[in-house]
């Protein structure tokens, strides 16, 4: 009886861990896909919008924190949506 409880607990742990690992893997895959999509959106928004007024600057010229402030400034100047600004920021921070 005690052994069957032990095996049952072990099975629950193994299956649960497998499920959690699978869930984590799928979540990570989902996050990765979302991140890739956001990067692609950010690259396109950066290319489409920033060059409308000025030469595009090298993403490596600024740190993550500096881009955070610059993009907030440019969001207002260029009438970007908040989502576009986040996408561009994500792209610049990933590219510097």
């Amino acid at each position: 009886m005690r052994n069957s409880i032990k095996y049952s607990l072990l099975c629950v742990l193994v299956v649960g861990s497998a499920l959690l690992m699978n869930f984590d893997a799928r979540a990570a895959e989902g996050e990765s896909t979302a991140s890739t999509n956001q990067l692609a959106r950010g690259a396109k928004a950066w290319s489409d919008n920033c060059g409308q007024c000025h030469n595009a600057r090298d993403p490596g010229d600024q740190s993550d924190q500096q881009w955070d402030v610059v993009v907030a400034h440019m969001r207002i100047r260029a009438n970007l949506t908040g989502e576009e600004a986040r996408d561009i920021l994500n792209f610049l921070q990933a590219s510097n």
Binding site: I76, A78, N79, T81, E84
Partner: peptide
């Protein structure tokens, strides 16, 4: 007041 609103494939800006 200013900002941008996504509209279809484009964007509408206002000030």
């Amino acid at each position: 007041a200013r900002g941008g609103i996504a509209l279809g494939g484009g964007r509408f800006g206002y000030s």
